[in-house]
Design a protein around this nucleic acid. Sequence first.
DNA 1: ATTACTACGTCTCGAGTAA
DNA 2: TTTACTCGAGACGTAGTAA
Lengths: 227, 227
Amino acid sequence: MTELKIQHILTLSYLLSKGAKYNYVSITTSSLGKNIKKSQQAASKHLLELEQNQFIERIISGRNISVKITSKGYSEMVKLSAILQKSLDSSPSHVELKGTLVSGMGEGAYYMGLKGYTKQFQSKIGYVPYPGTLNVRLDQKIHQEAIKQFETLNGVKINSFSDGKRTYGWVKCFNAKLNNSTNCELIILERTHHDDSIIELISKSCMRKTAKLKDGSKVSIKIPINS
Amino acid sequence: MTELKIQHILTLSYLLSKGAKYNYVSITTSSLGKNIKKSQQAASKHLLELEQNQFIERIISGRNISVKITSKGYSEMVKLSAILQKSLDSSPSHVELKGTLVSGMGEGAYYMGLKGYTKQFQSKIGYVPYPGTLNVRLDQKIHQEAIKQFETLNGVKINSFSDGKRTYGWVKCFNAKLNNSTNCELIILERTHHDDSIIELISKSCMRKTAKLKDGSKVSIKIPINS
DNA sequence: ATTACTACGTCTCGAGTAA
DNA sequence: TTTACTCGAGACGTAGTAA
């Protein structure tokens, strides 16, 4: 049994949309050509080949050509569409980052402890974070690159605020799971104070204790993507 | 902007199924080749071209290659999948037959009037047909061919029966609309007594009267397909 | 083992054109 | 107008092979 050639799927798709599943529909090769963005000659060849391989049936009366898709042709299209559909759906909806626990400068703890932030944390993520952020260095390039997409993804937005002297930038939170067990939030800062390879996490309790971590521990962070 | 080449969709589909929408996933060109049923070399070329046209991003560290689909690549796949999906869904779910009203031999009327049939008609299609079938000759080849598929489609099945002397074959009924207005049933007989170009219709009342028809009238019959 | 180059063969397309 | 042929150009895939 001959396989459906990949370049024929647009032709079959067009025929299908014209109702060629149950009825013989009359078409011209030039109109088909336009629709699949190929020449009239290519369209003609497509029909010929599809007929030869029994994906379609043709009835020719004079200049008029009528085409119907066979059940074999239809099921091939269903199969292909299902493959695409499945691959689009099944794409795992989380990002996994791996890295090493490092010491921060205490800056994160200072900023995140400001009232302008803690009030919003309480209402938007449901808790006031333990004072102190967990800094993780992403050792591999693939994780350093993967983190960049969070700039464009939508998380829980903690708005910027001002205390009269200066303004503090916004913070985006993404729910995450540390080492498959500890719930926490990955935070993306408007004004970051370190390079792309360091990420910061906050949590309700002290993660160094609950997850039994110390500097140099290898950690995994999984962030579900909900879109 | 370069278009996504049709031969690359299987590669993108495979990457997607490996989770390459959000994460960089590491793959080998030979495993990709196997999955898309092409050689390792072809797979390598595919990745190179996809990267060139910004459908994917690659990170190469030594022998290891990691790939992530770009948003451009993802949306192209969504687009294509939608086109296929739509063409599969939107296929008109009815068959239209056109033909000319002709006189039957009265045989249809005789058989369909037998109690073994009429009892089943009453319970399965909700009425006892007007005694007499409407015979329509399908003038065009495309309609003569289209009628053949009803052999394999499932309609309302009127079972065969025996009166002791002989058995009478089964009858399949398909709800139909005559000239867009009169409800009737297309009947497919196990033992037909005429050639493929003649179809028979039954209805509750006399269609020649209700639809104002006489021999030679051109008629249209639309049969919804429910599958 | 890996990726990806060159070389070559085959497939696909489109221009020209016949019927 | 149609469809579909021939044929040349270029796209695509694979074998062999280097790194």
